[in-house]
Design a protein around this nucleic acid. Structure first.
Lengths: 356, 356
DNA sequence: TTGTATGCGTTATCAC
DNA sequence: GTGATAACGCATACAA
């Protein structure tokens, strides 16, 4: 009987080999199953594996054999509703393709993001998925391009989810959804209901590509209907509930004239609703409100929110799928996913002019 | 000049060594930084590292050197509000302790869970964190005990988050929060408001340890006030919004007499609120509603939900902290974290008897 | 301060 | 069918 390894140090192929009276090579072959081995030998080896409770060492296998089979997922944080869904999609697709999934959070720190990408390069991650809108600055583009090239050289792949593409000659996979189209559609919907004074609540962060796209759609819809888009209002810098709440209150206090609010995100919309309710305004009878994202919260609000549906989970899945199954010689990949308006109860026809 | 490695195959220490005219050992020392190296040599090596864009191979390092520095996080799915927070905590603490974080989802499949644990054993994960209530069945306990032992033998550690402990002689780290205490507290609060007919909405899944604990607290509060606890109602099997909605509607249709509903989770409560509103009942004037979890949704509901706050993020952090910094000889670890009632707007004094 | 030799656990390449 | 042996990329012990 071979030595019984003590608690804490794992048995190795050698232990199994000794215990079953064959060579380490044979053990490896039995476990891999990709090589002819006699039935009797296989049985003996498997018995020893069970007795020793042997499991293979993934690190060592990666060193000797092929790659590492890991996808890295880097995100601001895990608790944002959309982030969690993208993560779910990434993990799902990574698993479906036989990869493991590493997660890391940056909490908005760009330095940390760089560190993490470097770490993932060390880990030999096959794909590094970056999630969440970045700014569209020149330095950002340059830095990302450099990172894309570095990862490519390491045999890895940079994947951008919901960020703008870097250029046709940059080795990266980009998957976005149609921010502008969705905003155009839902703004048109409000206009078709008769609204002419619509506030876009979400300005204040120029260069943020997600919000910029939505704002562009908002403005384009006005142009398409020969309307002048009201200057965007209500600096909602942080894009949380509170900022939506405060911005709406300020708007009301300033006596601004409007019949509808297009909140840049559902979360902002939830704050808007609270402020309107506190002011004694009814939604949608007095003021219409729409959001963007269609997170589960949208149906929990009162009234249920009319918004733009984004399939974040599919976004994550697509990102990983494209990154792993790409043409080896392909450089830049770019996919834009569709979105659609979901009509619920928070937007209605224009109130009678007499009302306010 | 040394060979420029082609795209796809990474430079190794040897490449760096050749390029900077030193031995591989010296390169290793420069990078590790834990050994005296002359300033000039260090500079030359670092220059070569930059030029070749070298990054260390984490797999190889793990094989030669010490452990792997990885924490695995296995969860039902990433999008549940509490799961996401626990995950956030796990990732945060793992990062703080210099570990990487692997995530896997089971989607409720026990077989998948077993596979994943085995996978994590191969990966040499230092800790394997299992999140979410399991059933308290005998087979579950036996299986988990076996897994705990297997992981322990591999030098890893099983961590149970929000699941019951396995026993004093089982090598596992368990971190729970006080389901029973929280339920006791919030039920007492309702009783103190005058309520005597309280429905506990969440029966129907016996053996589910989380819900069982809450139900126990509900019943104990009744006993403490010399009240007989109403038999639990409203089979809300799936614990989603819909089941809360349907169960409430059924309750109303059946003409059941009650003045308050204790929803087993905030998500269920959100469905309850919709059903009550549709029935023309006001909250809290006609019916009081309380939840459990205090997820962000709780403040987005109308009215804002009185509920039991659970610090899920801290739960995740504590789990990882205890698992990594335990006494090497400690077997079973068990921690119960506190919770507290958060009073908002959804529960009020008993309505006048005349009302219904 | 630096270099040489060896080992980590596995797989691939040869030989038998 | 099976086994010995040399990689894989890095870290450590030992020498110099």
């Amino acid at each position: 009987m071979a030595r019984q390894p003590a608690s804490g140090d794992r048995p190795t192929v050698k232990d199994v080999a000794a215990s079953s009276g064959v060579s380490a090579t044979t053990v490896s072959r039995v476990l891999a199953g990709n090589y002819p081995v006699s039935t009797a030998t296989r049985a003996r080896v498997m018995k020893a594996v069970r007795e020793l409770d042997y499991v293979i060492n993934a690190q060592a296998r990666a060193l000797g054999g092929g790659g590492t089979k890991t996808v890295a997922f880097i995100v601001h944080d895990l608790v944002g509703p959309s982030f969690a869904y993208v993560g779910q999609g990434v993990e799902q697709q990574a698993t479906a393709e036989g990869r493991l999934c590493l997660v890391c959070t940056t909490h908005g720190d760009p330095e940390r993001e760089l560190e993490l990408i470097e770490l993932m390069r060390e880990q030999q991650a096959e794909a590094v998925v970056l999630v969440g809108g970045g700014t569209n600055s020149r330095t950002y583009l340059e830095r990302m391009t450099q990172i894309a090239r570095a990862l490519d050289k390491s045999g890895s792949r940079l994947v951008l989810c919901g960020r703008p593409p870097l250029g046709p000659d940059v080795p990266a996979t980009v998957v976005e959804y149609d921010n502008e189209g969705g905003a155009y559609a839902i703004t048109s919907y409000l206009i078709s209901l008769g609204h002419r004074d619509i506030v876009f609540m979400g300005a204040g962060e120029p260069g943020h590509t997600t919000i910029d796209g939505r704002l562009r759609g908002f403005e384009r819809a006005h142009q398409a209907h020969q309307l002048s888009a009201p200057s965007q209002q209500a600096v909602a810098i942080t894009f949380d509930r509170q900022s939506g709440y405060r911005a709406t209150r300020d708007l009301l206090a300033a006596g601004r004239k409007f019949t509808a609010i297009f909140a840049a995100t559902d979360v902002v919309a939830s704050g808007v609703l609270v402020a309107l309710r506190e002011a004694g305004l009814r939604v949608p009878e007095d003021i219409s409100v729409v959001g963007y994202d269609d997170i589960p919260l949208a149906t929990d609000l009162t009234p249920m929110l009319t918004t733009v549906h984004v399939d974040y989970e599919e976004l994550g899945r697509t990102a990983v799928r494209h990154a792993l199954n790409r043409d080896r010689h392909a450089m830049s990949q770019h996919t834009v996913m569709g979105v659609h308006v979901v009509i619920r109860d928070s937007a209605g026809p224009l109130p009678k002019p007499a009302r306010r």
